[in-house]
Design a protein around this nucleic acid. Structure first.
Lengths: 377, 377
DNA sequence: CGCATTTTGTTTAGTGTCGGCACAAAGAGA
DNA sequence: TCTCTTTGTGCCGACACTAAACAAAATGCG
């Protein structure tokens, strides 16, 4: 098989494949219909077992939640949205989310080997507390990992080895989106991947180094929102002015284009829709978009100078910006980074839907990837 | 021995110790004079062999160079300064430097197992080219690693296994200083160490993650000089204004204190001496120092928000600043970082003399540390 | 001084991983 | 059908490490 050419002999590869097959993670087809090579005995075809175990991935936002079962390789097996208000008690909300996930597991009859929660807030490590879950009206510092774990325990979801309950993992949603983009999206193959993006308010960042999320010493790295991108810009609550946070988020676009902002929980959609629908026809929208691109470019250039990534992927409104005029954005970044070479880093739009969910699943899959036999079987 | 308690059995530890002793890297004293434990058979005392092999570490600055032989553990065994002008031909300069190193090796009769060169310039990886060796009047993009390697070959310095010549390593001088501080100085034990410091002009940064230098995808990371620390500051050649580079370097201190700047190649000493000699007596010096501390604090806070290190070590003039009023600096950083927790990162002055040299040696030692028997023996 | 105790170095046997190698198997092409 | 090519698989050995038993070097006590 071709996979033998990643530094391992055929014998070892066969042993590993047999082990993974016995654990139900992959399927081995000894007689593939379409042989890859031209001559010789055809390779066995390895594929993720579509009926294999899954992890439970959940996400919460200000007006609802979503639970999904995700197989190895990031494939969403089943998903269930939950609408309605998210109240101020994280235990009640997560209890409902986990109940939805448990229902999905019952319906599909899948075995669950882990659970991940994409939190719309900075998450402090190693405690797993949400430092600013402001959009959710949760208290700052809520121990979301422990709460999530408790909900899983109470829901009685059996863990990989039958008895012990599944392990809870949590992470910031943009960090997890970055992980997903690195594994299965626009960031595939990058060694130093920088992801920057917006939600409805503010700007977040994430960094994937050699395939692993870099969250700093206490989970608080890549708070990129307060880079200065306009010395004469509006004052920011951080004490400075012209921060990336307030100059390049959806509200900034609407302001620059002279449009009234709608409800807080749909600013992203509103701004994205504005560009898509009126960029070609409305000069004010074009100007506003260009302004945001220039400022985003300044911020990215600052990050390039510090992090020197080999790829940048943009999410949220920033994804729309690079899709609208990528040349302009790349030009600003190249002009304002110190070395032309590091400034010529590819800047791509994100490609994954539900990337935070897939990233949360990746987090929960990680122990299995690190040591399949130790977690299962 | 106590070292057996780092995840390895006594049997393995003994085997490793015997191997390292046979390679001449360490000495084993079975009857230490001062036993560490109180009861039982005393541990053998392991120590770096003071007569063991060395690496050649060299450094070049605008008015001279320095060569040193450095043993395992960062101990400088022999050193030789070289004064005089550094001309525009890197091959000639490095030839002279290497000749000085070869002379040291002859005098001491040491075996040389590698060579490292601390370059006062950004170094592009993996080519090993110096992008802005401006203070040296070398051309931008000079292939300093290849030149260094060629000089070593021509000097006929025998390599670890006798025949093949020693391998050349190069790195930016502040990056190497950071590595040295992490291994043997104020950064020991930090998992995410940020180092920031000045030379005579400008500001540099370096990051050591889990014991390894993080230089980005092409060696150009941690170019921290163009973070905005004063929106109303002086314009910078980068196109912005109020950059860390021009607001916190030695020239900035002299300007702020109303002193005339001396020759370019002694700005650091002049500024440091000014603070040490007149901070207590001269209000203008106190004000200028405080101004630089505030601006440095702003820059560090920006870096803390992005990198979330667990320790910061300052070098050059910044080291003097933290020694002079560390409380003020730490206060600014805590105030301006987003999370009080990540803002409370310890900020320490560097402790090593010749830290760039030691870091260059560390780079050259790395292959031996990774695989002693593969390189030697 | 002799002996038990404690702690550590060393030897030996056992285990698990992985590469090398030979052979078998499964196709393509003549 | 035979040969060639390519890949899966079983077997052996090298290697690294652990566990356990044993030997050695100190302390403390009678």
């Amino acid at each position: 098989m071709l996979t033998a050419e990643l530094g391992v002999t055929r014998a070892t590869a066969g042993a590993v494949a047999a082990e993974l097959e016995s654990l139900g993670l992959i399927t081995v087809d000894p007689h593939p219909t379409a042989p890859v090579g031209s001559q010789g005995r055809p390779s066995h075809r390895l594929a993720v077992d579509p009926d294999g175990p899954v992890v439970l991935a959940v996400q919460v936002h200000s007006d609802g939640f979503r639970a999904a079962l995700v197989g190895l390789g990031g494939r969403i097996v089943a998903t269930a949205p939950g609408c309605g208000t998210v109240d101020a008690d994280p235990a009640r909300v997560l209890g409902e989310v986990v109940a939805t996930g448990a229902e999905l597991l019952r319906e599909t009859g899948r075995r669950c080997v882990g659970a991940g929660f994409a939190v719309p807030s900075a998450v402090a490590e190693p405690e797993g507390t949400a430092l600013n879950p402001l959009h959710l009206a949760w208290e700052a510092g809520a121990p979301v990992r422990d709460i999530f774990q408790r909900c899983l325990d109470e829901a009685g979801i059996p863990g990989p080895s039958g008895r012990p309950p599944v392990t809870a993992f949590t992470g910031n949603d943009l960090n997890l989106a970055a992980l997903a983009e690195h594994r299965h999206g626009a960031g595939r193959g990058a060694r130093h991947l920088l992801v920057v993006g917006t939600g409805h308010r503010g700007v977040g960042g994430a960094l994937v180094l050699d395939g692993r999320l870099h969250t700093g010493s206490s989970g608080l790295a890549l708070e990129v929102g307060h880079l200065t991108v306009d010395p004469e810009g509006r004052p920011c609550h951080c004490g400075s002015r012209g921060c990336l946070d307030i100059e390049t988020d959806p509200a900034a676009l609407l302001t620059a284009a002279g449009r009234a902002a709608g409800p807080e929980s749909s600013l992203l959609e509103q701004a994205g829709e504005l560009i898509r629908a009126e960029y070609d026809s409305d000069q004010a929208v074009r100007d506003a978009t260009g302004l945001l691109i220039d400022r985003l470019g300044l911020g990215l250039a600052g990050l390039v100078n510090i992090l020197n990534p080999d790829r940048i992927v943009l999410a949220g409104l920033h994804r729309v910006l690079v899709e609208t005029d990528g040349e302009r954005l790349r030009g600003v970044v190249a002009d304002r980074s110190l070395w032309g070479r590091s400034g010529s880093v590819p800047i791509l739009p994100g490609t994954l839907a539900h990337n935070s969910l897939v990233g949360a699943a990746e987090l929960a899959w990680q122990p299995v990837l690190d040591d399949p036999l130790g977690v299962l079987g």
